[in-house]
């Protein structure tokens, strides 16, 4: 039990009157890539956003149940959601660099959390984050250029660099490749595989090929329920639930 990085029990999420997540139990391991798959509107993104309390910013959203990261209940009133989000980083569907320079985009998180004591340390964090995000060679000569001037794939890698610069323990990725072309997608997927060395990564994806390529564990969501959760190989080759099988073979969703 304590092996799990994140463990969720009986999670319910409501948007106003809509019951978006119904009694989901899931345990996510450290230093693995876990993929959430399922048809649109099945609640996988919503569930992802409960893991770093991003749903707090939506007024009508209510979360019930028990979610623990490293054994600590993140919905406990003693937990500071701001601190939590520094620990659980997030990359969004659409690349959303800030209208600042590339350097400032990456330095944003470390500056807020006081991770660097001086300019040299900050430079180092920026460089290592950009290196990990495979953007350093392309960006090192234009660190002061605006982040919005990069191409879509580069922007997304910038956002990943920005997220890992705060040294999170978990990285949540909400369809990080849906706005990217195949080449950029391949780069990001490669990156995810490398990130597994340092973090636990949870990725929401619409592409089953992607889930199969990058993840070790896969969870299939359908209509707000967690239908099946297990080893990626097993889910894709020998699913237990008929709903999982029909989704994977393209009959629902």
């Amino acid at each position: 039990m304590t092996d799990y990085k994140i463990s969720a029990k009986g999670v319910q999420v409501y948007y106003g009157d809509t019951h978006a997540i119904k009694d989901v139990d899931v345990d996510i391991e450290d230093k693995t890539v876990t993929a959430f798959i399922g048809p649109s509107g099945c609640g996988k993104s919503t569930f992802l956003r409960t893991l770093n309390r991003m749903n707090d910013t939506i007024d009508i959203c209510r979360v019930q149940g028990d979610i623990r990261i490293d054994g600590e209940d993140i919905y406990d009133s003693a937990v500071d959601p701001v601190q939590l989000r520094a620990k659980v980083g997030m990359v969004f569907q659409k690349p959303n660099p800030f209208p600042k320079s590339i350097y400032d985009n990456v330095a944003y998180g470390p500056k807020i959390h006081g991770l660097a004591r001086n300019k040299a340390e900050l430079d180092e964090i920026v460089e290592s984050s950009l290196r990990k995000a495979a953007l350093w060679t392309e960006a090192k000569d234009r660190l002061n250029a605006p982040g919005t001037g990069l191409s879509g794939g580069q922007q997304q890698r910038l956002c990943i660099a920005r997220a890992i610069a705060t040294a999170p323990e978990v990285l949540l990725m909400d369809e990080p490749c849906s706005a990217l072309d195949p080449i950029a997608t391949a780069q990001v997927e490669e990156l995810i595989d490398e990130l597994r060395q340092s973090f636990s990564v949870v990725i929401v994806t619409h592409s089953m090929q992607q889930a199969a390529r990058v993840s070790q564990k896969t969870a299939f969501f359908h209509l707000g329920n967690l239908v099946e959760y297990g080893e990626t190989d097993k889910i894709f080759t020998n699913p237990e639930d008929p709903r999982t099988e029909s989704y994977i073979s393209g009959r629902i969703g």
Partner: peptide, 8 residues
Amino acid sequence: DGSYGLGA
């Protein structure tokens, strides 16, 4: 979202 997601 991007900023909140970084813990700001």
